[in-house]
Amino acid sequence: MVSGILGKKVGMTQLFDDRGEVRPITVLQAGPCVITQRKNASRDGYDAVQIGLVEFVKGKRVTKPMQGHFGKHNLPPVKFMKEVAVTTPVEAGEKQAKGENPAAETNGQVKIGDKVLVDIFQDEKFVDVTGTSKGRGFAGVVRRHHFGGGPKSHGHMFQVQGSIGASSFPSRTFPGQRMSGHMGVDQCTVRNLRILGIDLEENLLMVEGAVPGPKGGYVVINKAKQPPRERRGFAGAQTVDPLKAAKKAAAGKAKK
């Protein structure tokens, strides 16, 4: 099994859940992807697969070396490729340990040219989504580091930084001083977005909340690395926290 898929952000909307509450959702086009290369522990030192997002790409648009890479296994040309982990079943792992024909080793029962579809998330509740954040250009300190800024009146400048260090001692600015500079266009991961819908026909995945990047931006969707623990109120039920309830009751009594 492959643990992730590539996709594109389509846009945001909202839906109403079973309890009638509104949920903001991001619609992601997830896949279809194709496995373009396999990495295995014996040769590369780790297990993974390289997958590519299948979309309409002219063969001429990819470089000659990449044409060769795809041509080797008769794959469609793809523009966006990433490596994702594979969860290797026990049998395959044993085979590898014995060194049985490592070149033809099925890496967790996946082979080059296999399709990766959004159905890998059917049993999952949460995903991590990695994208490239929107570019902010050269941004000042208020926007970039959430500085407070100056007073808005009494003849002051508004969004300036103020002091960046003391005077004669140490006579320098310490490294790491937060200043204005380029902001955005960074890789950014949002963890544990709840899956609220899967459309297998259209290859769509709906997750609750926002995803980094503009509409049409490429994203990597992985199974949640550290999904939230099953705990009280996890299922969305409004169970009362006994500790808080006790405190509330005590406060109410005190008032009376």
């Binding site: 389509v10 846009g11 909307t13 839906l15 619609v27 086009q29 259209e202 769509l204 509409k215």
Partner: peptide, 14 residues
């Protein structure tokens, strides 16, 4: 303009 995919999704949720 709204993307055709979003239009379809909206249609389903309507």
């Amino acid at each position: 303009s709204i993307s055709p995919i979003m239009a379809k999704v909206a249609e389903k949720l309507q």
